[in-house]
Structures are given as structure tokens and as C-alpha cells.
Design a protein around this nucleic acid. Structure first.
Length: 302
DNA sequence: TAAGATAAGAGGGACAT
DNA sequence: ATGTCAGTCTTATCTTA
């Protein structure tokens, strides 16, 4: 969490706002409203434990990154036909440089695999902005995509779809809540296809992807509604109970989170419609109803 | 108008053949 | 490999309070 001093437009107080680095949401600490949900992570991705470390770790120039087709290590022979002191080159040196430059270019960017990666990572740059992904997630995405590419899994699929699946997996691994829907709509991909590709990657690359944390789903859905902190807490208690008793197995966690919030809001007398909840959770109101009915039955039994 | 009920259809996992 | 089955979620439509 990091604090800023943006003034919240909802409650108009000079309150602090809090950036949640996990969900990338900017939240007012007075009223709890989500002011922005696309905040860029602007901290360094490393930690320094003392002054020396801070000095040695800060750096000039481009960091090494998996998310570049050459991992950011390229040396490019420039176009200016000048030597280091600015004088022009004589003809023979210049023609040598021309030949070197030509080969430099060919060997760097023109293997088919590299071209694929170049394309993919330019797409990744755009996705990063749209989804407010942190640097570690981008790196992880790039790593997964590289593996997929090496295994020939991109063939017969589009680059954006494989990339989107990589993003989704990276988010899951980092415990960040991004749903299939979130990622699909921003990439103009059908949710089904994204789900299919994701499964394929997990299967083929033998990835161990942790389950979505249902608590984070509660937080995410609640942040999109106007429910009170108390209702949210109560919902988390219920979720705790539900997870322990195994009712949640096989259910869409967002739908479940939504229905628990609905249940919680009923208990606390807050009026929120199923439609509002459903919209916040990204599921239909029927799903909310079904889960809700389930919950009522199963919780009464226990 | 919100909530509940019902039905049809899609996609995928488990399991048997 | 292919088919079937139970379970989940979605969409659509109708009824109820």
C-alpha cells in the first residue's frame, strides 16, 4: 500500500488515497470508493536494504527484460557515418560499416521466432497499459509466452490470444485478481477462446497455477459497489466459512463472491439489487440467484 | 420494478467403451 | 479415440410481489 494525497471526489475530503498494488486500484481511505482502477505501479521492482544497495541498484539505461525480443541486450550499429570524434569516415571504412550494419540487422531481428516475439511484445506493451500490469507481471507474462513459443504452441492460434492467456496465467501466479472477462474484453478475444488457450498453456507447459483467492474476489467486487466496510467484513467471514466447508468447490469464485456479498448486504439491511452485484462481479444475475439459493440451503443445514 | 422460476443451449471434465 | 453423463453458467422469457 502506498499513500498519496489526492482529494477524493466522492467524499470531497482531503483524505489520503491508497493504491493497492495488487489490484492496481486507487482507493479513498475515507469512504472506500475506488477512484481509479488503472493505476500504474510506480515503485521500483527491487528493494534496497541499505544506502549502498540503493546506490548500486539504481541504474542508468535500459534494464534487462524478458519482455523484449532480444531481452534488452541489443547493440545497434548507428546510422551516423561519423567516428567517435565526429569526423566523417573514409570510403572503405564506411562500406565496411554498411556491411556490418546489414548483418547486424539481419541476425538480430529476422529469425521468424524473433519476429514473432517482437510482435507479441509490442502487443504486450499495449496490454500492460490497459490492464495496469506491474512490471513483475509483465516479465512473467513474457517468460510464459517465450516458453509457449518455443513449444510451438502459437502456431494455429493468434498471437494476441496466446499472449492474453500468458497474461492471465501470470496474474494468477502473482495473486492478482484479473478475471478471464477482464482480459478478454480488453484484447478483443472471445472469453471461450481465452479459456481454451489458457488451459492449453497450463497443460502443455506443465504450470502449477494457484487457485484464485476468493477473499480477493470479495474485495474486488465490493470495491466496485457502494457497500459498507462492515458488510464487506461480514462477507469475508461467510466466505471463510464457505471455503472451509467445501461448498465453494467448482464454483466460479466471482459469482460466489457476488452472492455472498448479496447475502451479507441483506443481513446488514443495505439495499443493493442483484443486478448491481452481478454487474460488479461480471456474472449474470441468474448466477447470483443460483449461488444465493445454494448458500441459503447449505448454510442452514450446517 | 426487483426478484424468482424455468427452459434451452454451450463448453468442458470424468468416465466408460 | 469417441460418446455419454452430471454439473455449471449464460441467455431469454414469464410470473410474482
Amino acid at each position: 500500500m502506498m499513500k498519496n494525497s489526492t482529494i477524493c471526489k466522492m467524499c470531497n475530503k482531503d483524505g489520503k488515497t491508497i493504491t493497492d498494488p495488487e489490484s492496481g486500484e486507487l482507493i479513498c481511505s475515507n469512504c472506500g470508493v475506488v477512484i481509479l482502477d488503472n493505476v500504474q505501479e510506480n515503485r521500483a521492482e527491487w528493494r534496497a536494504f541499505n544506502v549502498d544497495e540503493a546506490k548500486t541498484r539504481s541504474r542508468a539505461g535500459m534494464p534487462i527484460s524478458l519482455a523484449r525480443h532480444d531481452m534488452g541486450l541489443a547493440t545497434i550499429i548507428g546510422r551516423a557515418d561519423k567516428d567517435a570524434s565526429g569526423r566523417g569516415l573514409d570510403a572503405s571504412v564506411r562500406s565496411t560499416m554498411d556491411r556490418l550494419r546489414a548483418w547486424d540487422f539481419r541476425t538480430q531481428a529476422y529469425s521468424p521466432a524473433d519476429r514473432n516475439l517482437r510482435h507479441a511484445f509490442s502487443v504486450l506493451e499495449r496490454v500492460k497499459d490497459k490492464l495496469a500490469l506491474s512490471n513483475p507481471i509483465v516479465e512473467k507474462t513474457a517468460y510464459i509466452y517465450r516458453k509457449a513459443q518455443e513449444r510451438g504452441l502459437v502456431r494455429g492460434r493468434t498471437i494476441p490470444s496466446v499472449l492474453a492467456a500468458s497474461v492471465y496465467i501470470a496474474c494468477r501466479e502473482m495473486g492478482t485478481t484479473r478475471t478471464l472477462n477482464d482480459i478478454a474484453v480488453l484484447n478483443n478475444i472471445k472469453r471461450k477462446e481465452l479459456a481454451r488457450t489458457t488451459r492449453l498453456l497450463i497443460l502443455e507447459l506443465d504450470l502449477r497455477v494457484p487457485m484464485v483467492d476468493p477473499m480477493k474476489c470479495i474485495a474486488k467486487v465490493a470495491n466496485r459497489t457502494r457497500l459498507s466496510e462492515k458488510t464487506k467484513r461480514h462477507a469475508m467471514d461467510i466466505m471463510n466459512h464457505v471455503t472451509k466447508s467445501g461448498i465453494s468447490a467448482g464454483k466460479d469464485p466471482m459469482g460466489l463472491a457476488g452472492s455472498i456479498l448479496y447475502l451479507s448486504s441483506k443481513n446488514s439491511g443495505e439495499n443493493i439489487t442483484q443486478i448491481d452485484i452481478a454487474e460488479a462481479a461480471g456474472v449474470t444475475e441468474v448466477t447470483i440467484r443460483n449461488r444465493f439459493k445454494d448458500l441459503k440451503n447449505r448454510l442452514d443445514v450446517n
